[in-house]
């Protein structure tokens, strides 16, 4: 496909609709954010109250911003670490001769296709102090363990992380399951003949061969953590106080609930910059994988 062809203007037309939409919404949107972030603006009417970099210096001193950023990061690290571990463990388990592995394969993925809005509203009600989950614990005689799961600042964020783990471990499982299916079985037999234990087999043969899957899941896990909005918004709304607030939720709160569109635009720029890093990582990863 390297041959020189006469330059045809029509060759440009194929990418044009996608380019116009992406530039018109994403790039123009980011530029508009940068512009609006220089104003003290409610989002209604035209922005007139120019404040320069004031929104950004306010942001640096805003403890809720830092808390949201920290929560987003903690959420990403915790969900990625737990979901990868559980997903890999289950993917290895379904390769043993256990019963019910077919059921597990199907069932583990069911939560993945559910809407986060459905999962979040369901858990919010199940996890109230008087909700279904605590009733279950009591009926099992585990009275001491009932909690105001989402209402107590000590447990709220951890609970949100675990809800995400429940919903999305199936995704990691599926990626690992597909990758393990690709590993040459001869390797296992060879390692077995050399006398490797199951643990050694997993740590020295399986885990390293899944390097590509680990990387993909880490990058995608961080990206979805960055995008996560529904789960926090519909369980705690960022509370109690601001203990479970994340960047997306904080932007929503500033822009939509409090009419701080200028400040919200400055917050959005921070989110754009972080997202950009992960866009680059995902592109690099996917082009190196496919070569």
């Amino acid at each position: 496909m390297q041959g020189h062809r006469p330059l045809a203007l029509s060759d440009y037309l194929w990418a044009l609709p996608a380019l116009i939409l992406v530039v018109g919404v994403i790039h123009a949107g980011i530029a508009a954010n940068a512009f609006y972030s220089l104003f003290d603006w409610s989002g209604v009417g035209s922005p007139t109250d120019f404040v320069g970099g004031a929104n950004y210096s306010k942001l640096l001193q805003d403890p809720v911003f830092w808390q949201s950023l920290r929560n987003t990061l903690v959420f990403a690290v915790a969900t990625v670490a737990i979901q990868l571990t559980f997903g890999l463990a289950l993917a290895i388990l379904v390769r043993t001769k256990v019963h019910l592995r077919g059921l597990l394969r199907t069932l583990v993925f069911v939560p993945v296709v559910l809407a986060p809005a459905v999962v979040a509203t369901s858990y919010r009600i199940l996890l109230t102090p008087d909700g279904g989950f605590n009733h279950l614990l009591q009926s099992l005689g585990l009275n001491g363990f009932d909690q105001a799961w989402l209402a107590d600042p000590k447990t709220a964020f951890g609970t949100i992380i675990l809800i995400n783990v429940w919903q999305y471990t199936g995704y990691s499982f599926l990626i690992y399951d597909a990758a393990i299916g690709q590993i040459d079985r001869g390797l296992f037999d060879a390692a077995r003949i050399d006398g490797a234990t199951t643990w050694q087999l997993n740590t020295t043969v399986v885990a390293p061969m899944l390097r590509g899957s680990h990387l993909v899941l880490i990058v995608l896990g961080f990206i979805s953590s960055l995008k996560m909005f529904d789960l926090v918004f519909l369980t705690t709304g960022g509370g109690p106080g601001t203990t479970t607030q994340v960047l997306t939720g904080y932007i929503y709160k500033q822009v939509i609930a409090q009419f701080h569109a200028g400040y919200g635009a400055a917050l959005s720029i921070v989110l754009v910059l972080i997202a950009l890093v992960f866009s680059i990582l995902q592109v690099r990863l996917s082009t190196s994988e496919s070569q």
């Binding site: 994403i26 995008k227 997306t248 569109a261 866009s279």
Partner: peptide, 20 residues
């Protein structure tokens, strides 16, 4: 590259201009 920069962007990062 212009298109792929949007790969990881959450929709909420565009809420201010979109809404307007």
């Amino acid at each position: 590259v212009v298109i792929l920069t949007g790969l990881a962007l959450p929709a909420i990062a565009l809420v201010v201009p979109l809404y307007y």
